[in-house]
Design a protein around this nucleic acid. Structure first.
Lengths: 194, 194
DNA sequence: GTCTATATTGCGATAGAC
DNA sequence: GTCTATCGCAATATAGAC
């Protein structure tokens, strides 16, 4: 195993284990064994357990950069909102552990929250707020809408679908095959209401 | 300090500390010191750290019982939905640590998830689904709506408002004085859409 | 660069005094 | 019923061999 493989092996194993049991729920002993490397490599490459955690966090939240490309799109607010929903679902599928870091950092922030997590979430939400505001300005959406609350409602709707999986899988089908239907359905609820 | 006080002191301290740093993030040493009692009292009253955690969890989720009274109300679906939103907001205000256990158990379930958390959440969501279904049956809501997805969208909207607090407090006013306005606004978004 | 072995600290649980 | 003192174990970090 060369240098790159060893480092990547640690990141991959840590991503899964920290997500499943939290920063304090995993020992570097167990983690290094699961990664198939020596325990001392964690200090060597990441300067200890917390350094490894912050590397995992950076990697997981880097995908929020994509939100900026939605902002720059040459389409209308409604299309951008659909793209936001599609991206949110895709993001949760591609990074199955992301939501755990997301919620864990929001409710039990580590010292890395303000540096890695907060900026990523704030940027994404501010862009979504801007999209709603644009729709109101262009008279496409009702002017009574508060852009901030509306954006949070939108983000909450999508994220909660994934967050609730463990409690709802017995009566809600969470399979990826249904994702496109879900996007249409969420757009429908959000545009027309009940 | 008599027996009841000592036990309550442990529950109160544990509720705060486990919420802030998770089950594995707090030692019973620190916890008993913060509660002002001896470390051995945790085993004596709760049969160890995990027993104390499960007692905290039971207490936090007992408020979900209230959802059954919303189901039995002698009003229409729209009124029940408003009551659901009002209760959700009130619940998060009255139990400021509840959402942390809620999300922590959903993303990193302990052995108590299936006994305490899952039943509480499932019951509440099933009642909400029933309310949406009732509205569709009575032709009050559009028949294209999928009751399950719609209920999850509703629940997600309210919960995310609280979940996102730490990342959004700079640009969204989360003060309780705005709660009634929020209820009206969420009802408005949900009923009429954009 | 990677390992093994170990130093040191802190953990949860409990025996036994009062 | 509540405490102090301690046991046995597992944690992180690192020194030193290769």
């Amino acid at each position: 195993m060369d240098k790159k493989d060893l480092r990547n092996s640690l990141i991959a194993t840590a991503t899964r284990l920290f997500a499943e049991r939290g920063l304090n729920g995993v020992s570097i002993r167990e983690l290094s064994t699961a990664a198939g490397v020596s325990i001392s490599m964690i200090s060597y490459y990441f300067d200890g357990k917390e350094g490894l955690y912050s590397s995992v966090l950076s990697e997981q939240f880097s995908c929020f950069e994509y939100m900026k490309s939605i902002k720059e799109r040459d389409t209308g607010p409604l299309d951008k909102i659909e793209e936001y929903i599609r991206w949110s679902i895709h993001r949760n599928r591609e990074y199955p552990y992301l939501l755990r870091y997301y919620t864990s950092e929001l409710t039990n922030p580590t010292r890395y929250f303000s540096v890695i997590v907060q900026p990523a979430l704030e940027t994404a939400l501010q862009i979504l707020i801007g999209i709603i505001r644009e729709g109101i300005d262009k008279k496409l959406f009702r002017e009574e809408l508060n852009p901030e609350d509306t954006a949070l409602a939108m983000a909450g709707m999508v994220n909660y679908y994934f967050l609730s999986t463990l409690a709802t899988q017995k009566f809600v089908n969470h399979s990826p095959e249904r994702d496109e239907e879900l996007i249409r359905h969420y757009m429908d609820i959000f545009c027309k209401g009940l």
